[in-house]
Design a protein around this nucleic acid. Structure first.
Lengths: 156, 156
DNA sequence: TAGATCTTGATTTCGATTCTCACTTTTGAT
DNA sequence: ATCAAAAGTGAGAATCGAAATCAAGATCTA
């Protein structure tokens, strides 16, 4: 819900995190980094690098592949982006949401649904604690068929 | 537990599945496929292709890369192996266990622990059902630090 | 503004995976 | 057992995403 309402405020917070990280590490802020970060944060879906580059080049066609790779690595490092790998050989990125969510992936049509479930989260931490693990992050993906693809399958 | 006791019976079942799949699709059974399948099913850990190939070549040094790739793809297709991607750029394979398990991955030392939790499984199915999804498989990975690496981190 | 330092973009390199193709093996019918 | 058709194999080439290289350009601090 919140992510639809105050999207831009959220973006500002994240850019602030990046700014601090850059300062802290003695890095520099550049127009490329700003543009890529903005484009990335505004995107609604899980972008692959290719897709992100395409978007970015609409604004500035001179941006190179490497820069996008490097910037996404930076965003991942400073914790405002997450890498995802849904098994199609393409790493995808998505902004870290305040409330962590997981994914339902339809293996029929490739549709990706997001969901979150407090109860599952809690159990994960419990399981980890029992094993003396300190969880930093997690990944939960459910693969299956969406309603439409279930129907399609029956016809075959 | 069970997986330690009747390992070989389990292996037989899986090979039976493969045999049926091969017959059904009009494929052929070969010494290479048998060897790779056996080696894979006997392995205790999540093998990368490199590792699997190395094992396989101990028995038959003439086996090529491509064959191992192709066979693992076949095993994945017929449902007795699963691909895993823990983010180190290497696809790993593991036999599908009767009781599905998930992974705790230490980002410090790379250690991988397996666990299973009925409650989490149940919730997953519930969540999927609410969204009209029919789950075929899932992936749950918790990333964090094991006890030793937590200690190491404090020292830094 | 200077200069030290970091960043960029084009290109190369790398590593994992897939493809290609000539040759071999399996299989089912005879 | 024999044969031909179909599938599989192995070696190397091709591919593709990601990372490294490096000369030229931008940024920042004093």
């Amino acid at each position: 819900m919140a992510s639809l309402k105050d999207n831009s405020a959220e973006r500002q917070e994240k850019k602030e995190i990046l700014r601090r990280y850059i300062e802290e590490k003695g890095l520099k802020s550049t127009v490329q980094r700003d543009l890529i970060t903005d484009t990335f944060l505004k995107a609604k879906t899980h972008l692959s690098l290719e897709e992100l580059l395409r978007e970015v080049r609409k604004k500035n066609p001179r941006i190179g592949y490497a820069t996008v790779y490097r910037t996404m690595k930076l965003l991942t490092e400073c914790g405002i982006a997450v890498e995802r790998n849904f098994g199609d050989g393409q790493t995808r990125y998505e902004p870290i949401p305040e409330s962590h969510h997981d994914h339902l992936i339809c293996t029929g049509c490739g549709k990706i649904l997001e969901f979150e479930d407090e109860r599952i989260e809690r159990l994960q931490y419990e399981v980890a604690r029992e094993r003396n693990f300190k969880v930093k992050s997690h990944k939960l993906e459910l693969y299956g068929l969406c309603l439409e693809c279930q129907k399609k399958e029956k016809r075959t």
